[in-house]
Computed example of a mutant assay.
Amino acid sequence: MTTAPFLSVRGLAKHYQTRGATLKILQDISFDIAKGEVVGLVGESGSGKTTIGRSVLRLIEPTSGEVVFDGTDLTGLSSGEMRRQRPRMQYIFQDPYASLSPRMTIGEILTEGLKIQKIGTKAERLQRARKALEQVELPPDAIDRYAHEFSGGQRQRIGIARALTLAPDFIVADEPVSALDVSIQAQVVNLLRDLQQRLGLTMLFISHDLAVVEYICDRVIVLYLGRIMEIATAEDLYARPQHPYTRALMSAIPSPDPTARTKRQILKGDIPSPANPPSGCVFRTRCPNALDACAATVPELREVAPGHFKACIRDDLEGSLTPPGA
């Protein structure tokens, strides 16, 4: 018997109208996340990663598509019904400086969601806030201080604590370490990994840092110009990337071994505008392996190995990344 996915996204699209043009930010996005799974979402800036995260939680309204969370179709809910779902799904924002109000104490920040949801008494809400601070390894007296009194890494821990106070089942972590110093990033990533495992959280982890994604995620979705290019387990994707775009991304990951040599695959040009995406495969204008047929055919996301999917009409590009001269 197959267990239903905890989160199922089908045919998700997000378009904006601006100055007579249609910006196709997302097109036909479909994926599943199992309960307790961490799924990474990677791609260049402008690929639509954050739009997926916010559309899934209906922080912005998708143009079309379906988002089913634990058996409930979120896209069909009224605002009141959606509010009742909110405690179960939370968002960790990218910028720890902009996401925390400078006029509120940390205690007020952490209990704001509980107050809106009318959960507990004031004393009970403060108790949950203190517990969340303990979970992110911050001292209890932080509850009476203000955001400007903390470092960037500490502020991001507060942002994580804010998400935890409502005891969510599902979290969207949107570039949670990209605004932090490199020396602090590893600490926050390790904290997120520990919390996910300890609390059994299901997570959509958005990042452009492929090394971080490999470390924390079970499976990875590769996104380009609003379309999914590839989906696989992290282990399989990093060892055997199948799509030309994924292979280019993987070739750019720095190796900890200074003697290792992997041929860098440079993509020419910039990501096209979503107001005028290429016909057929949206990646074809930068793809070193494009065929004439790529301009006429939108490739389906098809399974090329057990649990490994790619959106490419070619079958002759499979294999692992190899060093020059291999």
Score class of each variant (00 low, 15 high):
L267K: 03
Q242W: 12
V212T: 12
R240I: 11
M229V: 12
L223A: 01
M229K: 14
S251Y: 11
A239Y: 01
K263A: 14
L267E: 03
A234K: 00
R264T: 06
A248C: 01
L237N: 07
C217Y: 10
Y245R: 02
V213I: 12
H208F: 06
M250W: 14
G200Q: 09
T262V: 13
Q197M: 08
A234V: 00
H243C: 01
G269S: 07
P241Q: 07
E235V: 14
D218F: 08
A239N: 01
L204G: 04
G200K: 02
T202V: 04
L204P: 05
M229I: 05
Q265T: 12
I231Y: 01
K263S: 13
H243W: 07
D257V: 05
Q242M: 15
M203Q: 02
R193L: 14
A248H: 04
R219P: 04
Y215D: 08
R227G: 06
D194V: 00
L192I: 15
R198A: 12
G226T: 13
L191F: 04
D270P: 01
Y224W: 07
S251N: 03
D257N: 14
H208M: 06
D270H: 13
L249I: 15
D257Y: 04
I266K: 14
A211Q: 12
P241H: 10
I271S: 07
A234M: 03
A211G: 13
L195P: 00
A252I: 03
T202F: 02
L223P: 02
V222Q: 06
A239R: 13
M229W: 08
Y215V: 07
R240F: 08
Y238Q: 09
R219H: 13
L201F: 12
A211E: 12
L249C: 12
S251T: 08
S255P: 02
L237Q: 05
D270L: 14
A260S: 04
